[in-house]
Design a binder for these strands. Structure first.
Lengths: 226, 226
DNA sequence: AACATAAGAATCGTTGAACAATTCGACAAG
DNA sequence: CTTGTCGAATTGTTCAACGATTCTTATGTT
């Protein structure tokens, strides 16, 4: 019985949940992530607070949260806008990816996370077979998130989550997501193979090329209007 | 004249500054960083809002900012507390450092940042010569911040800034900072030498050992009273 | 004495209204 | 066509209030 009680302490983080401001932030985060709110769009305090039935003060707390996650851009006396990443931002995001994902593959695989990675690869292939490019995109995100989790660091996981959310903003200003995601379904499979084969250096080299390619593709197609 | 006007747009970021909530956050961040507010201490909304002459709502916006930087711990219905990092937190912080600083030294030196690193090493040595261990600590922080800046990534710089601020919390619960900082004055000098000599792998290996040592020292001496 | 319970105080969470400060667009004047 | 001015709209910030939750203290029971 002591064991069971001790186990319970694992659920402790889930306890402190709730708080209107955080729940509102969750909603807005989802809406931004799915493209309902477009990059560059201004979010009116009055309109949203009324629509969600919360006070302006509470909403503003939510805005602060999302601002710190770089999903919102807070301009003094002008309001908050859905972040519209610049080309320099894209370049920096890939710089960070190279560091985080590079460290991950160099560290070598662990059986537990390897399973997650395999599943993400399979899901991407399946979605691609059905021309579901939205699905490919999310599976791809799961793939890279799982990759980074090889670092076994909660903080790095969290940083990667934010990074990928920010990258979604970039995708939302592009017109043709298929052209971007398609080539990487196979590459994920190849990268997985290199990781499984236990040759971290080869995997790291392949990953660098992978990311270089993705970045170039993205930067070339990326022209945020003004 | 067109050219001069175009140049002006560089100063645009400096424009949007200010905002009471952010200025309050700056003040609190400094106070926490200098140890005026101790880890574990609760920050009363009423007391602080009154002391600073701002409303509770504004103060709460500041709290959200600092919470996201992991300097404050927000417990629902119980208030915000200065974060008291656990031993697991310390371990994770060092995991991140290994990734960030490791990537930096592997990337090799750039003349501009090398100058900053050299100065930080000198400052640490000078401060050590004067038994100014507080000074050694801040110089040491500058050293590692500069090291990480070799990645040439604004996001990584920012992440490192936050990480080091969090690490300061750890130092503030230790009794004897000298014992911790002293051994690393020389190590910084050695690491600088390895970087200058253009042997990234040696530097990286030395750094790993450096961080392992620092982490162990810290974890052993670290016993946050529950 | 140890423990459970209940009343009370303190503090947070959230709201709604109010007003000053700032931005932005329209329109008039030069 | 540029510049100055006015006013509407929106944000920044404060204040007071009240329900909800937690902490404390007192009370009572075994």
């Amino acid at each position: 019985m002591d064991n069971e009680v001790a186990d319970l302490s694992q659920d402790r983080p889930r306890l402190g949940r709730s708080s209107t401001a955080e729940r509102v932030a969750d909603i807005l985060r989802d809406r931004i992530s799915e493209g309902f709110f477009r990059p560059g769009q201004r979010l009116s305090e009055e309109a949203i607070s009324e629509a969600l039935g919360v006070s302006r003060n509470t909403l503003r707390e939510s805005f602060r949260l999302l601002g710190h996650e770089r999903l919102l851009d807070h301009k003094l006396n002008r309001g908050v806008f859905v972040r519209l990443p610049s080309v320099e931002d894209v370049a920096d995001l890939y710089r960070v990816r190279r560091v985080l994902e590079g460290a991950a593959v160099r560290r070598g695989p662990s059986e537990r996370t390897l399973a997650v990675i395999r599943e993400a690869v399979r899901d991407a292939e399946r979605a691609a077979g059905q021309d579901d490019w939205q699905g490919v995109g999310t599976a791809n995100i799961r793939f890279h998130q799982a990759l980074v989790s090889l670092n076994e660091s909660p903080r790095i996981d969290e940083a990667m989550r934010q990074l990928l959310a920010e990258l979604r903003l970039v995708f939302h200003v592009m017109e043709n997501p298929r052209a971007f995601h398609e080539p990487f379904v196979d590459r994920n499979r190849t990268l997985l193979g290199l990781i499984e084969s236990g040759s971290p250096d080869k995997a790291a080299a392949y990953l660098d090329d992978y990311l270089d390619h993705a970045e170039r593709l993205l930067v070339d197609a990326y022209e945020p209007n003004r």
